[in-house]
Design a protein around this nucleic acid. Sequence first.
DNA 1: AATGAATGAGACTTCATTCAT
DNA 2: GATGAATGAAGTCTCATTCAT
Lengths: 203, 203, 203, 203
Amino acid sequence: MSDTTDRAPRRMRTDARRNVDALLEAAKTVFATSGVDAPAKEITDLAGVGVGTLYRHFPQRADLIKAVIEREIDACADAAPALAAEHEPGEALVLWLDRLTAFVATKRGFATALHSGDPAFDGLPDFFLQRLGPALESLLAAAAADGAIRPGTSARDLLFAVAKLCAPMPDEDPGYGRRMVALLVAGLRTTAADQVSRTPPTR
Amino acid sequence: MSDTTDRAPRRMRTDARRNVDALLEAAKTVFATSGVDAPAKEITDLAGVGVGTLYRHFPQRADLIKAVIEREIDACADAAPALAAEHEPGEALVLWLDRLTAFVATKRGFATALHSGDPAFDGLPDFFLQRLGPALESLLAAAAADGAIRPGTSARDLLFAVAKLCAPMPDEDPGYGRRMVALLVAGLRTTAADQVSRTPPTR
Amino acid sequence: MSDTTDRAPRRMRTDARRNVDALLEAAKTVFATSGVDAPAKEITDLAGVGVGTLYRHFPQRADLIKAVIEREIDACADAAPALAAEHEPGEALVLWLDRLTAFVATKRGFATALHSGDPAFDGLPDFFLQRLGPALESLLAAAAADGAIRPGTSARDLLFAVAKLCAPMPDEDPGYGRRMVALLVAGLRTTAADQVSRTPPTR
Amino acid sequence: MSDTTDRAPRRMRTDARRNVDALLEAAKTVFATSGVDAPAKEITDLAGVGVGTLYRHFPQRADLIKAVIEREIDACADAAPALAAEHEPGEALVLWLDRLTAFVATKRGFATALHSGDPAFDGLPDFFLQRLGPALESLLAAAAADGAIRPGTSARDLLFAVAKLCAPMPDEDPGYGRRMVALLVAGLRTTAADQVSRTPPTR
DNA sequence: AATGAATGAGACTTCATTCAT
DNA sequence: GATGAATGAAGTCTCATTCAT
């Protein structure tokens, strides 16, 4: 549900639509390869459009990064209902957390954007939360109803914990992210941890 | 124990030493203010030296960032023995983890450097681990010996988990980092989590 | 009597005619606001047409500027007969010079175009002269016949002098232009000045 | 008395000084050739320096234009005492007005800057007036004392009148400027004109 | 050893103009 | 005829790095 691509969804010319898609696809690739500070030219060349086209659709660099990330987040959120429909509640939760872990682990741009301090990304955590929070909450509720986990877990805390723990780091032991998430989930079952975790964020 | 500043420790002229210190101090400030990509001029102006002096001591931008971060890491490691001497083992562990949390939470540059993808920082996680691993291990061992926690905990996993969970994020609920660390520690006490956590990193 | 708009006066579709008028009106406004180098988009947005329409009617930027200015010049020339019909010759001359002064003082684009050095405007002084020369000459002749001024005055010199002296300048004393024109007219009455002024332009 | 070049007159390195001079000289040439909007590269190439050097000394385009113009104005003002020392008062006045006319006629950038509307040039008319006003006033006073002209003439009005009348225009009859100045001077001798001209500007 | 002026590659951005719709 | 999306050349300006002083 990207601001940029959906603000005027009516009547976008087909070629314009095609170009925007090509740019987002190219940007995703280039960001993964050269980071979010890659020269604009690199992206437009890969997308096969002129630089002017990039600037028409994404006047600020941050607009492009946000569009790319939001696209990914959307895809991740959209995966939840399907998993819930096809698996047991407990399994669906685990599979979706794997999906989330994979997303965060793959998208270096996401962690970078979160930590950049650029005000352009101020809305990103919120978007992340708005979009994935409900998805995770319904999975958690279903799992709790099924007795797979206990209720009372903060989707918000879990979401950000995964986002942070699974952010890729150079030379990182590949199982690290999943191991840590497992540890968190385990912790959420303990009485002591429950007491800590249930403490709601004050702000 | 910075590579750059200690490579030739003998005979550094007093004024040169003063300049290096001023640069490190200035860089720490500027990195916190404007990020690690801040123009070199901003740093040299604050330090009151010419740009040439910066490049003499830190030929690459990464050299400067590493020196700044390593200085902080050194200070953090050096705090462990003092805490161990003055507090009960369990308390010392908690206090030191607080110290670590504060360091990570404060130094935006650290999280940025870790996630930047710049090969210049490839050695940073190792440095972080080499320097703080033993400090944490001895605190963990003492706490375990004292019965405050159970043995078998991976200092490495814990170190990186704190580094990641406590990295600052815009608009973040201030208690988040400590809450998550508490959750991790709680998780380390469970049998299930223990099983997961004890799995040693393969590399 | 614009070249551009009158080149094919037959059969211009009503909507096309409306667009051209809207463009000229918009261009006049934008030129006054942002200068003659204003982006084409600014003009087309104000006129409510697409850029393509601008380029259809005014392939070169200079075509548009000329059309706008010539429109103004035409209006100025057309005012002469009316004034001559309704006022004493001497008064009509003064009133028309006021009208000219006001035109020049208001249209920054005119002075800018004159001094731009762009070859596209090479014809502008001539147009200015062709169109306003006769108007002024008949006013001068009538005034001279009436004894209000002496004969022998060069309309050409007077025209350009007004154009230049009354071109607006930032922070200019508002009465400056009229004061200078009065000074010129006064000068034209003296024997000495007459001798100078009567020297005909060599080209 | 350029702001830019004189703000910190002490201790400018000789090579820096040489570069600034080369830039001013090159800019003067290029402005005359290609106008004040000429690409920066054109100027730096002619000056034999890198673009960075231009931007170090003249961060804004307007700074460069002002420096060039102010240099010319300075030279013009400095010519007054010499002429006054070597000629009769009346002749000195005429010669200096010729000098002024030549300056204005040659420097297209001056007229362009005056009419550009760019706030950066707001101070230019004042500078022009501050620097040349006294020069002209002393020449006028000497000529009046000598009986060559009558007293009471506004140096300010005369200065701007010359600046405007002598600004170059494409295809202009070469004698136009001097003829108009002569006409103004003649006008200043008449009683009627005197009455008009003596009216001081209200602002 | 320190300084800061000079360099120039290259990023960003704008906008006149074309042309598919 | 009208539209506005796409193009990409052209220009501005920044800043890491070098090197003369």
